[in-house]
């Protein structure tokens, strides 16, 4: 059980936090541009909801991979042109905790 918990905590390699200015850009990108499918309040639209409750049972690495590489067969595009992997990790961590306004 403890191992599982530890795994949960350390599943993501510790990444450098984006700068404060970049964090603002990422928040804007998620709310506005991801929001065009997932909803500005992230409660879902053509794409699924991205709220802590809906993401709780999903592994963070999988979510990061979806952001970076997209999801074939669905409208979810890959965002690697605009996001570095550690930025996607930061976004996933924030989504799972409750995304800032």
């Amino acid at each position: 059980m403890l191992t599982l918990l530890l795994l949960g905590c350390f599943a993501l390699p510790a990444a450098a936090e984006p700068s404060a200015a970049r964090q603002q850009e990422l928040i804007h990108l998620v709310r506005q541009d991801c929001g065009s499918c997932h909803g500005m309040t992230l409660q879902g639209g053509l794409g699924p909801a991205l709220l802590p409750a809906t993401l709780a049972d999903k592994p963070a690495e999988g979510l990061v991979a979806t952001i970076i590489g997209g999801r074939p067969g669905t409208p979810m595009p890959p965002w690697h042109r605009f996001l570095a992997e550690d930025e996607a990790q930061w976004i996933v961590a924030k989504l799972m905790a409750g995304f800032p306004q």
């Binding site: 541009d33 409208p75 595009p77």
Partner: peptide, 14 residues
């Protein structure tokens, strides 16, 4: 088939 098998660009907004 307007794309005629060419690879689509990712769509960032419908």
């Amino acid at each position: 088939k307007y794309g005629r098998g060419e690879e689509k660009l990712p769509v960032f907004k419908m």
